[in-house]
Simulated scan of single mutants.
Amino acid sequence: MDEEALLAAPEAEYMNAEQLAFFDQRLQQLRTETLDEITAIKNQMLGNSQVSDVLDRAQQEEESQIALRIADRKRQLIPKIDAARQRIRSGEYGYCLQTGEPIGIARLLIRPTAEYCTDVKTINEQKEGVYEHKSR
C-alpha cells in the first residue's frame, strides 16, 4: 500500500489492518532514521577538533549548541514514535485521544505520531498560547 492508495481508500476502511501495517512500517523507519541522525550529530560533535583561534572556537561552540538542540529535539521524538506504535498494537492509532474521532490519513501521513485531530490540536495550541501570554 502506498500514500496514494491510502488517500483514495473509502472511509469505511479507515485504520484497517493494511493501513495499520503501513503506518507501523513508516514509524519503524522514522525511528531508525531519527536514531541514525542523533548518532551522526554526536559523531560530528566528537570529531570536531580543537581550534586555537578564539573566533573559530566561539563559532564551533555555537554550532555545537545548535547541534545539541537538534539532537535533543530528535531524541524527544523517539518516545512519541514508540507511543504511536503502541497505539497501533492496541487499536487506538489514528483516533484522537481526546474525542475518539478519526485523525485522518492526510494528517497521519504528514505527522505519523499525531495524537489529536486537527480541531483539538488547534484548540490546545490556542490555550497554550493564552497561558504563555499570561505568564509573561
Rank of each mutant, 00 (worst) to 15 (best):
Q25F: 02
Q29V: 05
Q29E: 14
Q29N: 12
L30P: 04
T32Q: 07
T32E: 04
T34F: 08
T34A: 09
L35N: 04
L35M: 10
D36L: 00
D36V: 00
D36T: 01
E37C: 07
E37S: 12
A40T: 10
K42R: 14
N43E: 14
G47T: 15
G47Y: 13
G47V: 12
G47P: 11
S49F: 09
S49R: 09
Q50H: 12
Q50W: 11
Q50L: 12
D53S: 09
V54W: 12
L55E: 11
D56L: 13
D56P: 05
D56Q: 15
Q59L: 07
Q59N: 13
Q60C: 09
S64R: 11
Q65C: 11
I66A: 15
I66T: 12
I66L: 14
A67Y: 08
L68S: 13
R69N: 15
I70C: 15
I70N: 14
A71N: 11
D72C: 10
R73G: 14
K74C: 09
K74E: 13
K74D: 15
R75K: 12
Q76L: 13
P79D: 08
K80S: 09
D82M: 12
A83R: 09
R85C: 08
I88A: 02
S90H: 11
G91S: 15
E92Y: 06
E92D: 13
Y93H: 02
Y93P: 03
Y93L: 05
G94I: 04
G94C: 05
Y95W: 06
L97M: 11
Q98T: 08
T99I: 04
G100Y: 07
G100A: 07
E101F: 00
P102I: 08
I103Y: 03
G104T: 02
G104K: 00
I105H: 01
I105D: 00
A106P: 00
A106C: 01
A106F: 00
L109S: 01
L109R: 00
R111S: 04
R111N: 06
T113D: 01
E115Q: 14
Y116S: 06
D119T: 14
D119R: 11
K121C: 00
I123L: 05
Q126K: 07
K127L: 14
K127D: 10
E128L: 07
